[in-house]
């Protein structure tokens, strides 16, 4: 790339970042104005929320609860991705198993998250495992459906190459199969994270005694909108951060061979 082209790309990126920041600043400004003109306890001003956010960070309750929730999100996410990927690949490769389990998958896809959570707590008690399991079960069918598409699209030519050169099972999986599934894995991971963190809050609200969902329930009982919004902002920011520092760099790395 020539230096002028590099410069142009840099300014384009800077400009799009400035647009984004401007858009968020506008939202905060509208919020602040609306709150000041309404003077209601139900809509605290942006400045009040940020002050509350700072206080909750300083006394340690927000980092603690956020950490607990993120740990649950991570556990449920990893379980859902691993199990869903395995099921998806198997169903994509075997017609018999696909026919056998397809209706189960459809049933699970249509099962409301709340039903799964309540049943998990009823059957397995108000435990950590039940909570994480319930979240994972909510996400597994969607991951399986996405990865099944990927497994169906695998190129036989590459598998034949690996087989004729006696590339072992593990190396074939790592170098031949998985790279073909990366686009599907990323699609499943993206939508997976978005769904999982929302369901984790409900699981916490219904049957856990800590975490962001539990805190929001406490604030709800006191009609404390300031606290609810402070937690919301912190959580949304952390999830977006994961997208920026984890997903996007990983995706760029996986796609670096594309011309």
């Amino acid at each position: 790339m020539s230096s002028s082209a590099a410069q142009r790309a840099f300014w384009l990126r800077a400009f799009s970042l400035a647009q984004r920041i401007g858009s968020i600043a506008l939202l905060i400004a509208i919020w602040q104005l609306a709150a000041e003109s309404l003077h209601s306890r139900m809509l605290p001003s942006a400045s009040a929320v940020f002050i509350e956010l700072a206080r909750l960070c300083a006394d340690g309750t927000l980092p603690f609860n956020l950490g607990i929730t993120l740990a649950r999100v991570t556990a449920a996410f990893l379980v859902a991705m691993t199990v869903g990927t395995a099921i998806g690949i198997v169903m994509g490769r075997s017609r018999t198993l696909d026919v056998l389990f397809d209706s189960w998958l459809v049933l699970l896809l249509n099962l409301p998250a709340l039903v799964i959570i309540v049943l998990a707590y009823v059957w397995f008690g108000l435990t950590e495992a039940a909570a994480i399991g319930a979240v994972a079960v909510n996400k597994i069918p969607a991951v399986a459906v996405t990865l099944r598409e990927g497994a169906r699209a695998l190129d036989r030519n590459y598998s034949q190459m690996a087989q004729s050169f006696h590339v072992g099972r593990w190396r074939t999986l790592r170098h031949v199969i998985l790279p073909q599934l990366y686009p599907y894995l990323f699609a499943a991971a993206r939508s997976g994270l978005a769904l999982v963190w929302k369901i984790v809050l409900i699981v916490e609200l219904l049957g856990r005694s800590n975490g962001v969902g539990f805190e929001i329930q406490l604030y709800f009982q006191q009609f404390d909108v300031t606290g609810i919004l402070a937690y919301t902002i912190a959580f949304v920011a952390v999830i977006q951060l994961i997208e920026w520092v984890l997903f996007q760099p990983l995706e760029r790395r996986a796609g670096r061979w594309r011309p």
């Binding site: 034949q160 590339v167 170098h175 061979w257």
Partner: peptide, 23 residues
Amino acid sequence: VGYVFQEPRLLPWRTVYENIALV
């Protein structure tokens, strides 16, 4: 048995080096 297929069948997501090292 070495096999040269009609199309090269190189893995596009692996470098030339990695494609040969794979076997």
